[in-house]
């Protein structure tokens, strides 16, 4: 067990991508009750677009900002054109879910048409590696974790301290009352989708820098992000971040010490166990039932 610290550190580093995606999922869910299955694909599409710009000479750090903005705008367009028109029927949650599945397929097809099937090369942000607890971590990964941390702190500040952030939390709490005090629900939804998809683009960006750019970039991280969301609680932003990191660590620990081939089963077994103790996730709001 001598390499446990190393396994944990690399788990935290890979967990930062899960935590970002998880945070994006939760921000969008809280504002519009939509489980966005297309969040990873929107981020990936934005990174494909910026990759083309970077290849044409755009500085890489501007590329990151461009990816965030493009994904955010795609998010706003999605909410306006596909989600809002659904209205609020009884089975809204699952109808919206299927719409985002459909959108994911469309984006996949779009990437296929625009860039073909072969993985694209993506520039590395910083060269080199560093040794930590006896394992080599690329500077690329460490930078990714650092920027992820900064993004999460910025989001926390936004929701806690700015009036608009408070208004967004109020809308998540009681949307009808929010309208009654004069909060513009349309703007809240738009900003939530912008933020959610924007931070998903950060995750996609670093995932691409870490390996290569391909249409299935976020497939498996998104799946782990969902696991993190459920672990932490679908309604809690802090829970999503903690959940994302926890999954990163659990995944690495299970893969290293238990069995590489039953990795997913192990991770999910732990989540199921936690959910039986806390049915709404570790930090999620309990169900309100009228007696």
């Amino acid at each position: 067990m001598g390499d446990l610290p190393a396994v944990i550190v690399s788990g935290i580093v890979s967990g930062s991508a899960y935590a970002l995606l998880a945070l994006g999922i939760v921000i969008i869910f809280r504002s519009t009750d939509t489980v966005n299955f297309a969040i990873g694909d929107i981020g990936t599409l934005a990174v494909f677009m910026t990759a083309t710009m970077i290849a044409a000479g755009l500085p890489i750090w501007l590329g990151l900002i461009a990816a965030i903005v493009i994904a955010g705008l795609l998010g706003i367009i999605t909410e306006r054109t596909l989600i809002r028109p659904l209205g609020h029927s009884r089975n809204y949650v699952f109808i919206a879910l299927v719409v985002t599945i459909g959108l994911g397929l469309l984006i996949h097809a779009g990437i296929f048409v625009g860039w073909g099937t072969r993985p694209q090369a993506f520039p590395v942000l910083i060269e080199g590696t560093v040794k930590m607890f006896g394992i080599a971590l690329t500077w690329n990964k460490i930078l990714a974790a650092g920027i992820a941390a900064v993004a999460m702190i910025a989001i926390a500040w936004f929701f806690k301290k700015t009036p608009f952030g408070i208004a967004m939390r109020a809308t998540a709490d009681d949307p009808v009352a929010a309208r009654m005090v004069g909060i513009d629900s349309g703007r809240v939804a738009a900003i939530a989708w912008f933020l959610g998809c924007g931070i998903a683009a950060i995750a996609s960006f670093f995932l691409a820098a870490d390996t290569s750019l391909n249409p299935n970039l976020t497939l498996s991280p998104l799946f782990r992000a969902f696991a993190g969301v459920f672990l932490g609680g679908l309604t809690s932003m802090a829970g999503a971040v903690i959940g994302g990191f926890t999954i990163g660590v659990l995944d690495n620990v299970a893969g290293r010490y238990i069995s590489a081939s039953y990795r997913d089963t192990m991770v999910f077994a732990i989540i199921v166990l936690v959910l039986f103790i806390r049915p709404a996730g570790v930090l999620g709001a309990g169900r309100k039932e009228r007696v």
Binding site: I166, D174, I183, A285
Partner: peptide, 12 residues
């Protein structure tokens, strides 16, 4: 807004 603080409710 039950989960928000008293102060946040007023500010809103």
């Amino acid at each position: 807004f039950g989960q928000l603080t008293v102060r946040e409710n007023l500010l809103l």
